[in-house]
């Protein structure tokens, strides 16, 4: 059906001076954009996809944080006088714990690059453990706050605090499950054949979740 070779028309066509673009040499592309395969894209599929996932997450948290800021700015007094203060000190220490888990994750990637399977599993486990510790401390603080009378429904203060921090905690929890699964797979010897996509994706996501925290910490606890 399709013409496979080009024949010139017998009678010329009206073109209004428009000429077809000059066709390229040999292959198909002119310029580095799309040369004939094989060709390595600057960012492989996994990295690209994670990048866009992070864009979407940023918009999600952007919605939450801007909503929080709106309520905060329009409130007459903030924080409301009769509510308990947030535990800044403990949470600051906890922030360091979360950072440490990110370091452990970076170390795990290092181990992968050096093909050190045992170190990989160990460091993944460490990252997950630190992340878990972060969540536990957060949970403990929540329980204390609730017992002091700050709840989701008490007012805009409680609402925003638990929603924002809770949304982050849910992300940490999700990422934690992901890290745990990846660590298990690594322990079973996956990722040694060079197909490291899930692991790299997981690492990127973990760093994102960690990097998100300081922003929320500053927004919710400090300012």
């Amino acid at each position: 059906m399709t013409t496979l070779t080009v024949e010139h028309p017998t009678d010329p066509r009206r073109t209004n001076g428009s000429l077809p673009p000059v066709p390229p040499e040999g292959g198909g592309g002119d310029g580095p954009d799309r040369d004939p395969a094989p060709r390595r894209p600057p960012l492989d599929n996994v990295r690209l996809a994670m990048l866009f996932l992070i864009c979407a997450e940023v918009m999600f948290f952007g919605g939450l944080v801007s909503a929080f800021l709106v309520l905060r700015v329009t409130a007459a007094v903030w924080p409301p006088p009769l509510q308990p203060r947030l535990p800044v000190g403990v949470t600051a220490v906890n922030t360091l714990v979360l950072f440490a888990s990110s370091v452990a994750m970076a170390a795990a990637r290092q181990a992968l690059r050096r093909d050190d399977a045992r170190a990989l599993v160990r460091r993944l486990g460490l990252a997950a453990g630190l992340g878990g510790a972060f969540l536990l401390v957060q949970g403990y603080e929540w329980v204390r706050l609730v017992s002091f009378g700050l709840t989701l429904s008490s007012d805009a203060y409680g609402t925003t605090f638990y929603s924002l921090i809770g949304a982050h905690a849910a992300h940490v929890l999700g990422a934690l499950v992901w890290v745990a699964v990846v660590a298990l797979l690594a322990a079973r010897g996956r990722f040694t054949d060079g197909r490291t996509g899930p692991l790299r994706a997981c690492a990127i996501y973990w760093h994102f979740v960690v990097a998100l925290w300081p922003i929320l910490f500053v927004a919710v606890y400090l300012i």
């Binding site: 066509r13 009206r14 073109t15 209004n16 001076g17 428009s18």
Partner: peptide, 9 residues
């Protein structure tokens, strides 16, 4: 009828 070959103006 022949169509005009033009890419724009």
């Amino acid at each position: 009828r022949k169509a005009r070959y033009t890419h724009g103006n």
